[in-house]
Write a protein that binds this DNA or RNA. Sequence first.
DNA 1: TCCATATTGTCAGTATGCTGTCAATCTCAA
DNA 2: TTGAGATTGACAGCATACTGACAATATGGA
Lengths: 178, 178
Amino acid sequence: MPPRTSSPMPNNKSSSVTMDAVYTAPGYLFRRMQQIAVALFMEECKAFDLTPVQYAALIAISTHPGIDATRLSAVIAFDRSTLGSVIERLEAKAFIERKPAPEDRRVKLLHLTRAGAAVLRDIMPSVDQAQLRMLQPLKPADRKTLLGLLTQLVDLNNEASRVPLRAEDALEHLGKSG
Amino acid sequence: MPPRTSSPMPNNKSSSVTMDAVYTAPGYLFRRMQQIAVALFMEECKAFDLTPVQYAALIAISTHPGIDATRLSAVIAFDRSTLGSVIERLEAKAFIERKPAPEDRRVKLLHLTRAGAAVLRDIMPSVDQAQLRMLQPLKPADRKTLLGLLTQLVDLNNEASRVPLRAEDALEHLGKSG
DNA sequence: TCCATATTGTCAGTATGCTGTCAATCTCAA
DNA sequence: TTGAGATTGACAGCATACTGACAATATGGA
């Protein structure tokens, strides 16, 4: 357990600032937890050659076959520019295919390949295991509480994000209903 | 508020997987929240030319004058390789200085410059404002709960991190006491 | 003393993440 | 119908993150 280096430790000279300015900041804690989450995901899923971002993209393409990159970015709330290279890598691994859209020559439609569907099916247990391990150290009731509050917070801060989640965009490629 | 695209929406054909596999995963939520946190930090602090990571590093150098890069990485739990370029950028902005250590020619000691101390002093209110805004959407009691659970979780998962926090390392440059 | 081993900073390579720009293309209103 | 404006994918540039490797240097034990 890392010691809380706060006021009783006299390791700051003239300044009155302590490391608590960092350690207790929500932003710092979210960053640390995200890094831990990625580390656990990669550890559990190292057999599958998929990153967390690639996994989320693959799920979304599986759920929305024929979606285009822009709408995909809205569905998983990932940056559109970043997504370009993610898609490129998924295509290089032959997990997805990109086909030009007949009605709009700007758009490229995304589809899972057979291999992509297989990886997705096979990786599931490992992903679940990783998600479990992240919250494992907490008591079950606390896990529920944290997950609930976190879900609320992400939801309520949606518009503060650079790329707000717009799940309804996912339906547009199936004939405009939003 | 983004709609929860769950089972009632018939937008998946043959697969039984829905986007809930992503939306309800703690890892996904931590990623989203981290991105929101960075966006809010950058928005509040855009006048100061400091990123969240650079801010944390600057605080740590301020609190531990004469620390070296390896120990700094342990104190803020940031990757040692990444920290190299962070330090480089802080030095380029003249916020810190790097001096060779007399007793160990491998080591370069880090010190705040006058300009670095000034930025740190001036940016504080904006950082605090950003940290406030992240939790703002929650009721005060819920903010406390979330922050408490998050702190616990990061603490208990410390060893799962690639770069575990080792606050005690910070004291070693002041004459071995850990 | 000398060598195996460890540590430090650095670098190359890969993968996000964000800002901005750009050409190709599409849409819609005048 | 045509031209202004929007959209799409691509790209350049910067800033994290992590892996693995490497040379220079330190250290401790044989």
